[in-house]
Simulated scan of single mutants.
Amino acid sequence: MLTQASSVGVRLMVSYRALDEGTDPLFLGMLAASFAVPALCTALPAGRLADRVGGSAVTLAGLLTAALGIAAMLLLPGKGPLLACSAAVGLGHLLAMVGQQASVAHANATKGSDNAFGTLAAAASLGQLVGPLVATWVASLTQAGRGPNPDTSAGLFLCFGLSVLAMPVYLWMHRSDRVLAKNRLPNGQVSADMRVLMSSRGLWRLLTVSGAVLVTVDLMYAFVPMWAIEENISAATVGALLALRAFVSVVSRVGLGRLTRRFGRKPLLIVSIAAAAISLLALPILGIYGAAVAMIGLGLGLGIPQPLTMSWVVSLTKPSLHGAALGLRMTVNQLAQIGLPLGVGAVAAPLGVVGIFWANAALLAGAIAIVVGSETGQEPEASESGP
């Protein structure tokens, strides 16, 4: 929860800091992409490392990296350093996420993972609820004379504190790492199993859907501030809207295992992603109250698919490859985070914020089509036993 609160707060503050310096939609897209660039080459190795040494060590390394990136962001002004520091924070966040997901997968290697990943995702959503509210509130305390733009230094300092506060918690994650010794395979067997996994059509369909959903979260944090400034909406209101979205995501993830057993992964994925696409179509043309309704739809659409894609990828792999498979999922997510924000930012130049959100809705429509033609590995009333 603390990790996500810090990460979301940083993304908001970075966008506002860039807008303070007089930027355009393309540079905002570059910022969103910079959060993913260094992680692109490290997600899969991080997953493999988590399979060998445990998720707790990888998570702690990620928190340290993110905290250093935020500290540098506070000390170094200018657009260039902002891009570099955003990349460092993105790398740290990636390591922390892979470590956490690997720990959950290892601890649930012989039983169902839908509910376990739902719990992890619910905790992440709590962080996404708290982060925007607290970061924008603190940043607004000293914003006098700045119009709708907050004091980004105050917000970033808070995010640094959240990352530091999270570090001691991961001492308790070592317990789940003890499962590793039972499932570890020789390196040659792991490499052979990875080749089989990489050739699976079902895996690549899953990874495409996962990337489309995750990039929607990134685009929202990058471009909602732009929409708010155009509509003269305060940063505190933006924080409240994003917190509402996160709250709905938390609620949607409670008891997700029971929902999956009753309805199956595929129907849940189709309905939730459709809710997000419709909300993105409506958001830029609605007023502040309509935007609140759209955030409820986005909460459902971004809350349910992420834990389901995590448990889906675990269902396709052996216990000894859970970390590597989740790292591969994160790698594809980073590819989406790099290419799509740049493309959407370029579209936004002539079309404005409406084009940003509508292009994202079209992307989610493509993800729905992929889910319809895929086997997700969980049918209604099925057992939650692992592969």
Rank of each mutant, 00 (worst) to 15 (best):
M13H: 06
P25F: 00
Y16D: 00
R17T: 05
V37H: 00
Y16P: 06
A18P: 15
L26F: 15
Y16M: 04
S34M: 14
D24R: 05
A43C: 14
L19T: 04
V37P: 11
A32R: 10
S15T: 13
C41M: 09
A43E: 06
L31K: 01
T42L: 12
A33F: 05
M13K: 01
S34L: 11
A43L: 02
A18T: 11
A33I: 12
P25G: 05
S34Q: 08
G22F: 03
D20M: 09
D24P: 13
F27D: 13
G29E: 06
E21P: 03
L31S: 05
T42Y: 04
Y16W: 00
P38Q: 01
M30G: 10
F35K: 00
P38R: 00
V14I: 08
T23F: 12
P25I: 08
L12P: 02
V37R: 06
A18E: 12
A18Q: 06
A33R: 03
S34E: 07
L19Q: 08
F27G: 11
T42A: 15
C41Y: 09
D20S: 08
T42H: 05
D24I: 08
A32I: 14
M13S: 12
T42F: 09
C41F: 09
A33E: 10
L12C: 01
D20P: 00
L40C: 04
L26K: 11
R17W: 06
L40W: 02
F35D: 08
E21A: 14
F35R: 03
L19K: 02
Y16R: 00
G22W: 00
R17L: 15
